[in-house]
C-alpha cells in the first residue's frame, strides 16, 4: 500500500492506494498526521482496493487517539467492497463518510473552525 499525503486548509488528506491489511496497517498507524491528536485527517479511499479487519482496526484505533473520536478522521470515496467491510464490523457508525474528498475536507474545516 502507498500513502500519499497532501494538505488543504490545515486538513491532512491521506490517499491510500492498494491494500490496507495486517501487513500495511503499521505504516498507516505510524503516519504523523494520524498520530497527532489535534490534526483532522481525511482518508481518501478512492484507490483502496481491499481492507480487512486489521485495516479497520487501524483506522478505528487512529480515530480513538483523536481529540474528537467521531470527526477526527473522515473517510471519503470508499468503493463497495471496502464499504461492505465497514458495514459488517459496524465501524461505519464511528465515521462520517463522504463520497467526495473535497466535500469531506470542507466538512472537516467547518468542524475545526467551529471548535477554534
Amino acid at each position: 500500500m502507498t500513502i500519499t499525503e497532501t494538505s488543504q486548509i490545515g486538513i491532512a488528506i491521506l490517499s491510500l492506494n492498494g491494500t490496507l491489511d495486517a501487513l500495511s496497517a503499521p505504516d498507516f498507524r505510524n503516519n504523523r498526521s494520524v498520530i497527532d491528536p489535534e490534526k483532522s485527517v481525511v482518508i481518501d479511499m478512492e484507490n483502496l482496493d481491499f481492507i480487512d479487519s486489521s485495516g479497520i482496526g487501524a483506522i478505528v484505533g487512529a480515530s480513538r487517539q483523536k481529540r474528537q473520536p467521531v470527526g477526527g478522521i473522515i473517510l471519503s470515496c470508499m468503493n463497495d467492497r471496502v464499504r461492505k467491510v465497514f458495514e459488517i464490523t459496524n465501524a461505519q457508525k464511528l465515521f462520517h463518510i463522504f463520497d467526495d474528498t473535497i466535500a469531506a475536507v470542507d466538512f472537516a474545516a467547518t468542524r475545526q473552525s467551529a471548535r477554534a
Binding site: 463518510i97 463522504f98 463520497d99 467526495d100 473535497i102 466535500a103
Partner: peptide, 20 residues
C-alpha cells in the same frame, strides 16, 4: 448505498453525497 449518522441534517446528507 451510503451511511449517515443519526443526527445528520438534510444539508449534511447532501454534503456527504456531493459526488452523487
Amino acid at each position: 448505498y451510503g451511511s449517515i449518522h443519526p443526527d445528520d441534517t438534510i444539508h449534511a446528507m447532501l454534503g456527504k453525497n456531493r459526488k452523487f
